[in-house]
């Protein structure tokens, strides 16, 4: 599904150059539930942005669904994002002057679905996430958890192959965080690849595969079977902290 080969990315900050990703090799299969971890500045968000075609890379190769993602026009990238990827952000990124239903329906607008139809589909998704009563509410009338669920509904509506979530629980309390993770898990069980960036171990522990980044390189990959051990080290890390 996703194949990264020696990905390099650096940002030019004035006169200095910041080498963020220093050769990332990563394979993610269809239907995996992956978390990317790492301390701040380790390049985890950059990696996610490259995966989501929100940003391009300098060197290496990125294949998505056996298609090389490189040097695409903005238009093509936008179209591909619309088809393949659903985004969930830490700060929700809902459009403030649109109500929940309209926010959810927006990706379908760019797919060319007519208004009546896309609003009906949006209602379906809101219902699935238990938000039907809030359909006509504006984002500023909803709680963080509700907003994130609206954002998830929006990510799902275009029936993407991958959900990319950048710190989806970063702005939420523990209970709400777990609820959101539960939703993401259900989505994953429906066959959609879910990739989240997080720095919270308990959140990462709910995924099947943890990719730990350190200074722009993959430090270790912990697989499903090893998660127990991960939980162990994670509690130890907590104790030492």
């Amino acid at each position: 599904m996703i194949t990264l080969n020696n990905i390099h990315k650096s940002y030019v900050m004035g006169s200095s150059k910041l080498h963020v990703l220093k050769g990332i090799d990563l394979d993610i299969e269809q239907g995996e539930f992956v978390s990317i971890m790492g301390s701040s500045g380790s390049g985890k968000s950059t990696l996610l942005n490259i995966l989501g075609m929100l940003d391009n890379y300098d060197d290496g190769s990125y294949h998505l669904d056996n298609r090389l993602i490189a040097d695409m026009s903005e238009k093509k990238a936008a179209q591909l994002r619309n088809e393949m990827v659903g985004f969930v952000f830490q700060s929700f990124n809902l459009i403030s002057f649109k109500n929940a239903m309209e926010n959810v329906a927006l990706p379908l607008y760019y797919k060319g679905v007519n208004r009546k139809k896309r609003n009906a589909i949006a209602m379906e998704y809101l219902e699935k996430l238990g938000l039907a009563p809030w359909a006509s509410h504006m984002p500023n009338e909803m709680s963080g958890g509700q907003k994130q669920r609206v954002a998830i509904a929006r990510a799902l509506i275009s029936q993407p192959k991958i959900i990319l979530a950048d710190e989806p629980t970063g702005a939420l309390d523990t209970t709400t965080s777990y609820e959101v993770m539960e939703i993401l898990k259900e989505i994953n069980e429906a066959g959609i690849t879910v990739i989240i960036v997080t720095h919270e171990h308990d959140i990462a522990a709910m995924t099947q595969k943890v990719v730990r980044l350190k200074d722009g390189r993959i430090d270790e990959i912990i697989r499903n079977g090893e998660l127990k051990a991960f939980r162990h080290t994670y509690t130890k890390e907590l104790e030492t902290a």
Partner: peptide
């Protein structure tokens, strides 16, 4: 600007 970012993330082309 932010709205533009959101629209683009969910699949709006620059021209649109």
């Amino acid at each position: 600007t932010k709205e533009i970012g959101i629209r683009k993330a969910i699949g709006a082309s620059p021209a649109s």
